[in-house]
Design a protein around this nucleic acid. Structure first.
Lengths: 202, 202
DNA sequence: GTCTATAGGCTGATAGAC
DNA sequence: GTCTATCAGCCTATAGAC
C-alpha cells in the first residue's frame, strides 16, 4: 500500500502500472489482485486509509475550547505537519477533485466534507464571538486549504525549477510556510476594529 | 486541440484515449498522429498554447504604474477571469506540477516562472513603498495562486458534493471568490501600522 | 498464500488506398 | 490531406502448480 500510495500520487491511477507497484513493494504482481481485488481495489483501499486517517487527526481540533484565532493557527500547523509527512494525501486529493471524484464512493466522500466541517466551525466560532470579521466559511475554507495544498503539490515542480536554475530561490521549508499562512490568515480574518465597538446585530 | 484540452485536463494524459479526442473533435484518429506527431505531440502543443497565452495576458500588468495594492487586486481579478474562461489551465498546471513537470520542456517551463515573476514584482513594489508589510514573495505567491487555483480545480468535486447533498451550500460564484481573495490578501498584506511611522532601514 | 505463465482486451501508431 | 484496416505492444487479471 505504501508503494501504491506513492506511485498513484505521483503518476495517477491510469499512469501507474501494477507491475511497478509490485516491484517497488517487492511482492508478486498477482498478489495485488489476490489481496485487493485488482488495481482499482488497491486504489480504493489506499484512498480510504489515507483520507480517514487524515480526517481523524484533523477532527481532534473539533471540541477544543481554545479561541478561534488560536484554533485556526493550530489547524494550519496540524494540517501542514500531516501533509508534510504524507505528501501523497494532497496529491491524491487534488487528482480526485479534478476528475470529479471518479474513484470516490460513499465511504470516502464524507472525508472531504468532514475537513470543511472543521474549518467551518472554527470560522463560525470566530465570527460569532467577533474574533473574526464576517466572512463566508466556504470561501475561506477554499482559500485556506488551497494555499496549504498548493504548497505541497507544487513541491516536485518547484524542486525542478530551482535545481534547473530557472528560478533563483531557496527551497522553502514547510515550517516557514506554516508561519506565513498563519500570519496571512490571522491578519486577513481579524475583526475590522478592536472588539470594543462591535456592530450589534440583534 | 479544444477537445484534447478538455479531456487531458479532466482525465490526465494517460487517462485520455486518442480515439476519445478524435470522436469529440469529429476528426479521424489518424489525423492526430499526422498533424501533431501522436498523442504526446498533441499534449505538448496544447500545453504550450495554453500556458503561453495565459502568461501573455498576465504579463500585461507588468508595466502598470498603479500602486501595489491596486495591482494585486487587478491581478486576482484578471487571473480569475482567465481561468474561469479556461478551467483547463489550472487543471493541467496542477497535473504537471504534481508529476514534476514530466511533459514540460524548455519552451513551457518559463511560463511558470513568468507568473511568479509578475506576482513577485507586485509584492516587492508593495514592500518597497511600504504599502505592504515585509513578506516573502515566493511564499506569498504560493498562497495566492494556491487559493485561486484550488477554487477552480475543486469545482467538479464541489458540484458533485453539493448535488449529492453531502454538503448543504450553494455553488460559489467566481465573482464572489474574486472579492473574497482580494479582501483576504489586501488585509493580509497591509502594512502593520499606517505608513506614518515606517521602520527606517538605511 | 505465493508464484509463473498466459490469456484477452485495449491502445497508439502506421501502411497504403484515395 | 483524409480515411480504413491492421499490427504490434502493453497491461491487467487469472488459471493452475506448489
Amino acid at each position: 500500500m505504501a508503494a501504491g500510495t506513492e506511485l498513484f500520487a505521483r503518476h495517477g491511477f491510469e499512469g501507474t502500472r501494477v507491475e511497478q507497484i509490485a516491484r517497488k513493494a517487492r511482492v508478486n504482481k498477482a498478489m495485488i489482485s489476490y489481496h485487493f481485488g485488482g488495481k482499482a481495489g488497491l486504489y480504493r483501499a489506499i484512498l480510504l486509509s489515507l483520507f480517514t486517517e487524515t480526517v481523524e487527526r484533523i477532527r481532534e481540533l473539533k471540541d477544543s475550547p481554545e479561541p478561534a484565532d488560536v484554533l485556526l493557527r493550530t489547524f494550519v500547523r496540524n494540517f501542514t505537519e500531516l501533509v508534510a509527512r504524507q505528501p501523497s494525501v494532497p496529491m491524491m486529493l487534488v487528482r480526485e477533485a479534478i476528475s470529479g471524484g471518479r474513484h470516490l464512493d460513499r465511504e470516502v466522500l464524507p472525508c472531504f466534507t468532514a475537513i470543511f466541517s472543521v474549518v467551518r466551525e472554527i470560522i463560525e466560532k470566530g465570527t460569532r464571538d467577533r474574533t473574526f470579521r464576517q466572512v463566508d466559511p466556504l470561501l475561506t475554507h477554499l482559500s485556506l486549504i488551497g494555499s496549504l495544498v498548493f504548497f505541497f503539490i507544487t513541491a516536485p515542480l518547484r524542486d525542478r525549477l530551482i535545481s534547473e536554475a530557472h528560478v533563483r530561490a531557496e527551497k522553502p521549508e514547510p515550517e516557514a510556510y506554516v508561519r506565513h499562512v498563519q500570519d496571512l490568515m490571522t491578519r486577513a480574518l481579524a475583526a475590522e476594529a478592536p472588539p470594543a465597538a462591535p456592530v450589534e446585530r440583534t
